[in-house]
């Protein structure tokens, strides 16, 4: 380890994954341990906040130790502890935040608060070094945002969902057609096998807006199925999934392309758990190629919630000297700026 290397420990507990990672120089993953609670939440058909918080408390030191052991580093070599301060489930965030504060105090290291979406964006930095200006489409179970960046650590949200996050819409539609939680991957798989024969609405909102809305689409799917059933007609799940996905992807890609043009960026990133969606990856890749834009999509392990991305985003704040103090708190609705 050279003198100039930066070693950051990242901690992430904003939803149902307890994750800890050690990242060198903001880009090199030394360890990235993720303990998912999804098996526990499946029986409830979604994440139950109180249960998520309980699991985080049980797991947190186990996962910190696993990450430190795998990275084969000591706290003496670590420069700072970075932790997700929001947005997310507040009770879940509090476990990570308080663990990070206790750890920073015990091992006498500085503390850094990281925005969860900044983390998702910086997952791309681990894959390919970021260059600016750039535009990121953030898509997950809790977020749907278009974020413009002029330089490291500077974020401008130019569009966001006004109701459901895209991943939420996937899960709800999946439930409607009887698919298990979480439904996103099932819809993506079925969509690849069906034709988009039903025309669901495209929610473009007012001209020039980069905001999103998916609740109308979700209702439209439910109503269409209901009406079809009453008329004795039926569609296959593959057809429904393909039609729903076609609507979602057209809007996501269309707005991303529009924003990229207006902001005159040459670089586009895809981030968040829904970035694992094959249909979305293919459509965005095609659109970016047509416009001559460089596109980065992280591998699956860095798309879903993880702590390497938090350590990567934390490294930027470390370089800029933007530390948190002992009063750092968890915020369910933290702004990205």
């Amino acid at each position: 380890m050279s003198e100039k290397d930066t070693l950051i420990v990242g901690i992430e507990t904003s939803c149902d994954e307890t994750a800890v990672a050690v990242v060198k120089n903001g880009r090199e993953i030394l360890s990235n341990v993720v303990s998912s609670q999804i098996e526990s939440h499946k029986r409830f058909g979604g994440v139950v906040p109180e249960i998520a918080s309980r699991h985080h408390v049980e797991q947190v030191t186990v996962i910190i130790e696993a990450a430190m052991t795998e990275a084969d580093v000591t706290f003496a070599e670590v420069d700072a502890i970075a932790v997700t301060e929001g947005p997310g489930l507040v009770g879940a965030l509090l476990v990570g935040v308080n663990a990070a504060k206790a750890l920073a105090f015990a091992v006498d290291k500085p503390l850094i608060g990281v925005h969860h979406i900044a983390g998702h964006i910086y997952a791309n930095h681990i894959v390919e070094e970021l260059t600016f200006p750039l535009l990121t489409l953030v898509v997950s179970g809790g977020h749907t945002e278009l974020v413009y960046m002029e330089e490291h650590g500077s974020y401008e949200v130019i569009g966001e969902t006004r109701d459901d996050a895209v991943g939420e819409a996937y899960d709800k539609v999946a439930r409607t057609i009887g698919l298990p939680y979480p439904g996103g991957p099932h819809i993506d798989r079925l969509a690849a096998e069906g034709e988009p024969v039903i025309t669901f609405p495209r929610s473009w909102l007012e001209p020039g807006s980069y905001d999103f809305s998916f609740s109308g689409l979700k209702s439209s799917v439910i109503n269409t199925l209901h009406n079809a059933k009453q008329r004795g007609e039926s569609w296959t799940n593959e057809q429904i999934a393909a039609s729903f996905q076609a609507s979602v992807i057209e809007v996501l890609v269309g707005k991303t392309m529009g924003a990229a043009k207006e902001k005159q960026v040459k670089r586009v990133l895809l981030a968040g758990g829904v970035a694992a969606n094959k249909g979305l990856r293919a459509a965005l890749t095609k659109a970016c190629e047509a416009e001559g834009l460089r596109l980065t999509i992280p591998p699956l392990k860095l798309c879903t919630d993880n702590a390497a991305m938090i350590a990567a985003a934390g490294t930027v704040k470390w370089k800029q000297g933007r530390f948190a103090d002992d009063r750092l708190n968890g915020h369910s609705g933290l702004e990205l700026n």
Partner: peptide, 18 residues
Amino acid sequence: YTGVRIGVTTAKTMAWAL
């Protein structure tokens, strides 16, 4: 619940680190 978790998380993380 939240109060207890804040105390316990702080205590067990410090204990582990030390």
